Simulated assay, not measured.
Amino acid sequence: MIDMSCADWRKSSRSGNTGQCVELAQNLPGVSAIRDSKAPEQGALVFTKAQLHAFLHNVKTGQLDL
Rank of each mutant, 00 (worst) to 15 (best):
L24G: 03
I34K: 13
D8P: 14
H53K: 15
N27H: 00
S12T: 11
E41V: 03
F47S: 08
D3E: 04
F55D: 00
A7F: 05
K49P: 06
A25S: 01
S37C: 00
S5K: 12
G19C: 07
F55H: 01
K60G: 10
S32W: 11
L28R: 07
A25D: 01
Q26V: 09
K49W: 11
A39Q: 15
G62F: 09
L56V: 03
I2C: 01
G43Q: 01
N58P: 02
N27W: 15
K49L: 05
V46M: 03
L64Q: 00
V59W: 02
G19F: 02
E23D: 04
Q26G: 08
L64F: 10
S37L: 05
A33G: 08
D36M: 02
D8V: 15
N27K: 05
A39Y: 01
T61I: 00
G30V: 10
F55T: 08
S37Y: 06
L28A: 08
H53F: 07
D36R: 03
K49E: 14
G62M: 01
A7W: 06
K11A: 00
E23T: 04
N17A: 00
R10Y: 09
A50S: 04
I2E: 09
N58C: 07
S15C: 14
F47C: 09
G19Q: 06
F47Q: 02
S13V: 15
V59F: 12
E23Q: 15
S15Y: 15
R10F: 12
A33K: 05
R35Q: 13
G62N: 10
R35T: 08
C21Y: 09
G30Q: 15
I2D: 11
V22E: 02
W9F: 11
A7Y: 02
H53I: 07
N58Q: 11
R10I: 08
S15K: 14
S5W: 12
K49D: 10
T48M: 03
L56R: 04
F47T: 10
V46A: 10
I2V: 13
A7L: 12
G43P: 08
P40E: 05
G16M: 13
Q51H: 14
N58Y: 10
Q42E: 05
P40T: 01
T18S: 13
L24V: 12
V59N: 04
Q42H: 08
G16N: 14
T48R: 10
G16V: 10
L56D: 12
G30E: 04
E41H: 11
N27Y: 15
Q51T: 15
T61D: 07
T48G: 10
V22R: 01
M4W: 07
A7T: 01
H53C: 14
Q20T: 06
G62C: 06
V46T: 09
N27R: 15
D8C: 03
A50E: 15
R10M: 11
M4P: 13
F55K: 13
L56F: 11
G30N: 01
E23S: 09
Q63K: 14
P40K: 12
G19A: 02
D36P: 10
L56Q: 02
S12Q: 14
V31N: 06
A44P: 10
N17L: 09
H57T: 11
T18W: 04
S13K: 15
G43R: 11
D3T: 07
